[in-house]
Amino acid sequence: MSVLLQIVADTTVQAVQTGQDAMAKVSVWGLLGKGGVLMYPLYLLLILAIFMFFERFLAIRKASRIDSNFMHVIRENILSGNVQAARNLARTTDSPVARIIEKGLRRVGKPIDVIEKSMESVGRLELYNMEKNLNILSLIAGIAPMFGFLGTIVGMIQLFFEINSTGNFELSVIAGGIYVKMITSGTGLVIGLIAYIMHNYLATQVDKTANKMEIASTEFIDILQEPTR
């Protein structure tokens, strides 16, 4: 009896080790390599998404940097009647807020509504520059899963064509072919999810910067309506 138990135990251990070895051989890169030709467009979409994310991230972060003392200095110069100094400061400061304020300073002396409209036009241009190319990430988030599904459908057609041609209806052959063809779908969904997260994160940062621009514009209009010293 003990001999039989020992044989069963040895067999179980060997089967577990064999399963572990098989799982170890199935790496992520190995699976991706079985995805077929349509994996290459997915790789390109992933590379493009990563590039666009970092390019826009750096641009938006640069645009969102606003010196906390900037509006204070602008206010002091305007109230003291030194508008030219305020214009020089705004002109030499590289930020969307500074460019909006500089546009308003050029219109000092004209009606408030004229100043507001000129500042709004600059604000829309700055907002457009920040949002530029964000639609590419949105597009990748939409088409990457479609490319994945297309790869799976093409693979399934090939699989069933081979089964019909060879007459081999073994379950292992069918299951093995199906899991390989599902790789493109999984990859496309992952890339689409990554691009979606990237797009929404950057859109949130753009909204935060737009709020800063709006607050600075309102503060500037309030300053113009204060009595000069």
Rank of each mutant, 00 (worst) to 15 (best):
T12P: 12
A98P: 02
A15L: 12
A216L: 08
G30H: 01
I223D: 10
D113C: 09
I66N: 02
Y128H: 09
I215C: 08
M130F: 00
I143Q: 01
N168D: 14
D222G: 14
V180Y: 03
L105E: 06
I223M: 11
S2D: 13
G33V: 08
A175R: 00
Q84W: 08
F70C: 09
L4P: 00
T187P: 00
L139D: 12
N129L: 05
I191F: 00
G177K: 00
L193M: 14
N200Q: 11
G186F: 06
E55V: 10
V108D: 07
Y40K: 13
Q158I: 05
D21W: 09
I101Y: 09
V108Q: 08
S95G: 07
R75I: 05
F57P: 12
I78K: 00
F147N: 03
R124A: 10
A144W: 00
E126P: 09
Y40A: 12
I60C: 01
I183L: 02
Y201S: 11
S95P: 06
I7E: 11
N200V: 06
I163M: 04
P227H: 14
L224R: 08
G123I: 05
G167S: 04
R61Y: 13
E131T: 10
T166K: 03
Y196L: 14
T18Y: 11
S185G: 09
F161T: 15
V28A: 04
R56E: 07
I163Y: 00
L31R: 04
V154R: 02
V173W: 03
Y40Q: 11
A144N: 04
L127P: 07
M1Y: 13
Q158Y: 05
A85N: 07
V8S: 12
G192S: 01
K25C: 09
K25M: 10
F51N: 12
S165G: 08
I78S: 03
A49D: 03
G176S: 06
N82A: 13
Q14A: 15
F149E: 02
V97D: 05
A175D: 01
D113A: 13
K117I: 12
N135A: 10
A85H: 04
R91N: 11
S121E: 15
Y43K: 03
K103Q: 11
R87V: 03
K117R: 14
G30Y: 01
A90L: 10
Y196W: 06
R107N: 11
V173N: 01
